[in-house]
Computed example of a mutant assay.
Amino acid sequence: MDYSTKISERMWNLPDKGELESKREQTFIDDIVQKAHIERELFSHLDGIQTVFDGGAGCGRFSILLARQGLQVTHFDISQAMIDKARELAEKAGVLDHITFVKGALEDLSAYTDRSFDLVMSFDAPISYTWPNQEQTIRELVRIAKKRIMFSVSSRLGALPYLANPLQKNQFILDKNSSDSWVQWCLNSRQQMIDGFTFREENLLKTLDTGLLCDVEETKEAYDRGETPWCITYHFMPDELKQILENCGVKDVALAGPGAFARTIPNEILVKIMNDPEQKKDFLDFCHHYDSNPYVCGMGKDNLFARGEIG
């Protein structure tokens, strides 16, 4: 088993992962923006879709959404904790009869024949966690798609500001009184992160060149010591992702960078917008319009979104 699979399995199976992931849109504004963008794309491109494969489906944010539309969805994830949470939420939504839950790693889709699903989707970067097999993973996901694909992967240009801004997540905290442990850590560690920060050009240039933020060997060693490091994550350039998809036979590839507009706005204004339903709707509408512009697609907050047609 590759390190990418072993590390991902350990991290996403942490006991609280399913619960925390299911509440991200109640906690962070960047998650609201990204999920709203994807939801709009899905609802705009369901023509001819009856069967769906959701790879790295997590706690079911989109598999349950599509099951509610009467589609038959295969919810595929590496984490039993995520699947258990998704099943719980699917039961509450009354859509268990529209979802098949499968535990597995994206690196192995051999159980599925060519063109098995009308729509194949994979959101919030599970493809990027399969490094160094990310291109093969994309090929396999395209292989099992009959009509359409929708992916979001980690964005290289969008991720580089992380290395120059240790406070980047603070910008998107929706409620500073939240009991979420990550929110409170971000707030309580603010000055410590500022004091400990040093700008290192070589780190950014290395990531720009390789697409990797972490030291791969250090991450592997941490895993072998019994720790739970973040997954080794490959970050794509926009033209790179488009070329890979086109080489797989995907047509009419469209890219977007969810969060590109929102990341330009300070926290106080974002919170004000989110707390006013009318402003929030208008803001998310404009974000989708702005973030879909090809000139900003690489600067999405975390992910690079891609949509394309098969055949």
Score class of each variant (00 low, 15 high):
127 I>N: 10
97 D>C: 02
95 V>D: 11
75 H>Y: 01
61 R>T: 15
50 Q>I: 00
8 S>I: 02
29 I>Q: 08
106 L>D: 08
50 Q>L: 07
22 S>V: 03
72 Q>A: 11
65 L>Y: 06
9 E>N: 10
89 L>G: 05
17 K>H: 09
85 K>L: 07
48 G>F: 02
124 D>K: 03
80 Q>Y: 02
40 R>D: 07
24 R>K: 13
115 R>Y: 11
107 E>C: 00
26 Q>S: 13
53 F>K: 02
16 D>T: 07
38 I>P: 01
8 S>G: 09
63 S>M: 05
62 F>H: 14
69 Q>T: 05
30 D>G: 03
51 T>F: 04
33 V>L: 04
79 S>V: 07
43 F>Y: 13
60 G>A: 10
31 D>P: 00
91 E>K: 13
17 K>W: 13
17 K>G: 00
9 E>K: 15
105 A>C: 14
82 M>T: 03
63 S>E: 02
100 T>L: 13
21 E>F: 15
17 K>M: 14
124 D>Q: 12
51 T>K: 04
106 L>I: 15
18 G>I: 03
50 Q>V: 02
67 A>R: 07
118 D>T: 05
16 D>N: 06
60 G>R: 09
65 L>W: 04
10 R>M: 06
112 Y>R: 00
110 S>D: 11
98 H>M: 06
49 I>W: 12
25 E>F: 02
71 L>G: 09
53 F>E: 07
23 K>V: 01
63 S>T: 06
42 L>S: 12
34 Q>P: 01
66 L>W: 07
10 R>Y: 01
111 A>K: 12
71 L>E: 06
76 F>H: 10
90 A>Q: 07
50 Q>W: 01
99 I>R: 08
99 I>C: 11
53 F>M: 03
113 T>D: 15
59 C>H: 08
68 R>K: 15
74 T>P: 01
108 D>Y: 10
